[in-house]
Design a protein around this nucleic acid. Structure first.
Lengths: 333, 333
DNA sequence: GTGGATTTCTACAACGATTGACATGCGCTG
DNA sequence: CAGCGCATGTCAATCGTTGTAGAAATCCAC
């Protein structure tokens, strides 16, 4: 049923290995033979069997991308960018919804899909996966997001502290004085690092730090942002600006503000983080930190492929994703 | 480096065949032996090499999902649901961004990833892929969306005509008389089928059909919806309601309306289609047709797996996805 | 036109899991 | 104790591709 190498060989009147050589660009081949083989390949519409190839070569040209959930816009956009970047290099991406930390970790350690994949790009959302570093993963791994303390693998992330500093400073620059933060967290995760930049900016501007303005919430989705915003509005002295640690939180917060009949940015200014497409089309459009996702994807894939090829020195690398602050209606009207 | 069957056999003190028998649930095995083998498997954290297995068995337990773009919320949500449904059944989903019809079609016909995947779920956005049906695809295929005329494969879709009829009728029921449609298209694709339901509803209510209120636009994203809405507002007699053929178009339209200082739904009511999460949190929240995505995912996967197993009769099946009309602020304030 | 280098191609084994045919050993039953 | 059924082992072949080693063909210089 499926045409295989030997069929092509028979048709072209050469040996199986010669066909394989043509396919793999082996140097010493007459242009004549090559033409003959290529004609046979075209005639039979031959496609190499990837299972057999991967079994023999020990390489599949498949990589995995582990993300918490693909329905979340940031991860969807990231996944799309990484798929594109990989496809350009002849690599296929297998997307894994980890749906929580433990599961994610399990995946990484769990035999990497029966040795099918050559490596993994891992993007946790909340806490840094400390234990992942500990367990020696057999396959190359590139980590996206905040860096855990240990671990020996490459790492690509935005400078969350600086970006958060910039976002907060922007709010200060438009005259806000009571600036809340939604999405703070503990440990060394995203929520903690972004809080660091937020506090730093307040301090740099000589503004007081009010703990009641820092909300943790339970997650990083719209409902969490909406709930946190309701809490803030219930304060005796509500904020005049909010820095949300991602865009979904910000969109949830905007929804609460709209429900409360408050004007954005006049009553409360809002800044997000991630620059997902929804924010650009929301009314008001969302001011946000915009990491260069294409850059991130290209470099994460490149880093991983270098590791897989093995022709990179063993020193671990850290890349910092460029970003811009996109100023839109939610802070400037 | 990688543990293989023979390692497990050695550790358990049995033959390779016995281990294989345990893994593949061969009938005659002592619970003792089974326990011993399973312990060895656990100890060594053995995972069968999927390349080898798939090469030998001719089945990989991988299926592909071909969608136009995963960054589009509807497809992201669909992909997430299908991944979940497949994972429940021990199947892994490979997501393919087709980014346009021809490429998509090519993928499907092009050797199905070198026989790695067992089948494909194909979800085109625009026109029905007529040629796909023509070419005899070797592997099982389930088509999502509007059904093309020919082709011999299973098919899962919402009743677009009825749903569009319902959406339009809802607008009529709240007193609208000049109802526009955004996203119409020709042929037998989504844009044509939904227009059919739209026109049917107008006719049923005795409303005139005004061709200038039917906008095709160039795509199905927010900017397309925004542009179409601008066109509608420029009409000598603008509409008092708009039915957008998907939620992204609707969100774009809402943005234009906000920019124009018009009130939704007082000046213009808006209905979408797909029920993506963004619509639920937008202000105003978006009234929309909500297909049951979980149902869709479960059934598409189930259908495909039955085909792959080969224990389904050869008659082709058509399933209709249940849906509801979610009435929200964009039509009721 | 012969020796030796070089190019071009082929035969064979291997990757790891599975399967089938067949042999073997054990505990029972009659 | 013959004979049966069950549980496992042995051996070999197979899936399709590629690396190794070497055979065959070609080329050049003398």
């Amino acid at each position: 049923m499926a045409t295989r190498l030997s069929d092509v060989a028979a048709r072209a009147g050469v040996s199986v290995k010669t066909v394989s050589n043509v396919i793999n660009d082996y140097p010493h081949i007459t242009s004549q033979t090559r033409a003959k083989v290529e004609a046979a390949i075209a005639d039979l519409d031959y496609k190499p069997n990837v299972s057999a190839r991967s079994l023999r070569k020990g390489r599949s040209d498949f990589i995995a991308l582990a993300i918490p959930e693909m329905a979340s816009p940031y991860f969807a956009e990231l996944g799309a960018a990484i798929s594109r970047a990989a496809k350009k290099r002849g690599i296929t991406v297998l997307i894994d919804q980890t749906e929580g930390e433990q599961a994610a970790e399990k995946l990484v350690l769990d035999g990497m899909r029966g040795q099918l994949i050559d490596g993994i790009i891992f993007s946790p959302i909340t806490t840094a996966p400390a234990r992942i570093g500990a367990a020696g993963t057999a396959k190359p791994l590139v980590l996206l997001g905040e860096r855990p303390t240990g671990g020996n693998f490459d790492h690509v992330a935005i400078d969350s502290v600086q970006a958060s500093f910039d976002a907060t400073t922007h709010l200060i620059s438009i005259g806000r004085r009571r600036i809340a933060a939604i999405g703070v967290g503990g440990g060394a995760g995203t929520g903690a690092v972004r809080r660091k930049g937020y506090r730093k900016a307040l301090k740099a501007a000589g503004l007081p730090h009010d703990p009641s303005l820092e909300l943790a919430g339970t997650g990083y989705h719209r409902p969490d942002g909406a709930a946190s915003m309701r809490e803030l509005l219930a304060l005796p002295e509500p904020p005049d600006a909010v820095f949300c640690f991602n865009d979904l939180l910000a969109l949830g917060a905007l929804r609460t503000l709209a429900d409360a009949g408050l004007s954005v940015p006049d009553d409360v200014a809002v800044v997000g983080f991630d620059d997902i497409e929804d924010g650009r089309y929301h009314s008001p459009s969302l001011t946000t930190i915009s990491p260069d996702k294409e850059w991130l994807a290209e470099n994460a894939v490149e880093l991983l492929l270098e590791r897989i090829a093995g022709n990179s020195d063993s020193t671990r690398r850290d890349l910092t994703v460029p970003y811009t602050l996109e100023i839109r209606e939610s802070t400037t009207g």
